[in-house]
């Protein structure tokens, strides 16, 4: 019993210590961002590995999610004779929720895990301490460009996901099931608000990009420098990112769409 309590206390303490280290790490990253700006080449390379390499999985998933929404939405809406509102349903669910959330989850799985493994291996093979020996700050040189690349890529990926999904929904809805194409777009335009829906969706995706990149980089930087430690850190990245993204999504949705 006493042992149980001791373990509880120990776990809580290590949890808080980790959170504290993470926050300190985040402050270091943010202060390192300024020194990335004079070296756009570092950022560009990371945009490639974080953004461009996630492009395919995001667009293909977006297309299929949109097509499924078109199918399911059509079956439900046709019961009420409201097939024309299919466009609204597909666009609202994509732009508000699925676009930012699913692309952030895919981003955490595709780019986040790769970042953790990369940084963790750099630590395990003592490349990071090697850089410190050469008076190169690894935070400024390695971490901050990756963070900035994730932060910039995430809203672009989420927008692509939603856009491709809406086109996929249209393909299934009016191509396969015979919803009027004009009604699909005009109902959508009449009911989706730029400020309330699109901008809020973009804000969500920026927040998710911030959190997912932070967690991925921190887990890598904080990993125990062995092969087992790196593999555990990679798992933790995906799990923690998914938790944080879904939890934050609830809070953000309550804040943004709560009043109507």
């Amino acid at each position: 019993m006493i042992e149980l309590l001791q373990n509880l206390g120990k776990n809580t303490r290590t949890g808080f210590t980790k959170l504290g280290r993470g926050t300190f790490f985040l402050l270091q990253i943010i202060s390192g961002i300024l020194s990335v700006l004079p070296r756009p080449r570092l950022l560009l390379n990371q945009m490639y590995s974080v953004g461009v390499l996630s492009f395919l999985i995001i667009t293909i998933s977006g297309l299929f999610v949109g097509m499924v929404l078109g199918l399911q939405g059509y079956y439900i809406l046709s019961d009420f004779g409201a097939e024309e509102t299919l466009g609204v349903m597909v666009a609202a669910s994509l732009v508000r929720e699925l676009g930012p959330v699913v692309s952030a989850l895919l981003f955490a799985g595709r780019a986040g895990s790769a970042l953790t493994a990369e940084i963790g291996l750099m630590k395990a093979t003592e490349q990071l301490s090697g850089m410190e020996m050469m008076a190169v700050d690894p935070i400024k040189r390695i971490i901050s460009p990756r963070f900035l690349a994730g932060l910039l890529s995430m809203p672009l990926l989420a927008a692509l996901f939603s856009a491709v999904g809406i086109i996929g929904g249209q393909m299934v809805g009016s191509g396969l099931l015979g919803v009027d194409e004009g009604a699909y777009w005009s109902q959508m335009q009449a009911n989706i608000d730029f400020q309330d829906d699109i901008i809020n969706g973009v804000i969500k995706s920026i927040v998710f990009g911030f959190v997912a990149s932070w967690i991925a980089l921190f887990e890598g930087y904080d990993a125990i420098p062995t092969s087992e430690g790196v593999s555990r850190a990679t798992t933790r990245t995906v799990v923690n990112s998914a938790f944080s993204i879904l939890g934050l999504d609830f809070i953000l949705t309550a804040l943004m769409f709560g009043d109507n």
């Binding site: 953004g51 492009f55 666009a91 672009l156 939603s162 856009a163 777009w185 335009q189 009911n191 699109i198």
Partner: peptide, 16 residues
């Protein structure tokens, strides 16, 4: 393409 996606959302999907 990301920016095109954003523009698509703004102009074709929303009431902007």
């Amino acid at each position: 393409s990301g920016i095109v996606g954003l523009f698509f959302l703004a102009l074709q999907v929303s009431n902007l």
